[in-house]
Amino acid sequence: MQLTMRKLNGVDVVGVLAERIDAAVAIRFKDEVRAITSQSRGRVVLDLSRVDFIDSSGLGAIVAAMKQLDGQAALDLAGLQPNVDRVFRLTRMDTVFAIHATAETACPTHAQ
């Protein structure tokens, strides 16, 4: 599982370069998000635009990733494809996470 980290208008954006967050990678995903966000303060955006499948294990790993962030930090989600979005809605986890259309809309410039 490959993750990327970039700054977008001052916000940490973690990109997931995998098509699936499923039972086969859920634990590794959680550990790698923790590692890559260890220096993050404030809001972190998880860019899921490349992910086209998530199961309950992957959903649990994202919830766990949010919980393990520093107490001051929040985890937002961006770029959910339809089948991913549906898992969040069915489990009502869409009420727990702030969900943005894209990483760019999640991180507007200060001028906006």
Binding site: S56, L59, A61, V63, M66, L90, T91, V96
Partner: peptide, 25 residues
């Protein structure tokens, strides 16, 4: 059954969604 959403972040469920999804779909 749907896991009730707890008020606080720390007790959010990380599992138990699987059978809910199977039964729902």
């Amino acid at each position: 059954q749907t896991a009730p959403l707890p008020e606080t972040l720390d007790t959010l469920p990380e599992g138990g969604f699987g059978w809910f999804l199977i039964r729902d779909l």
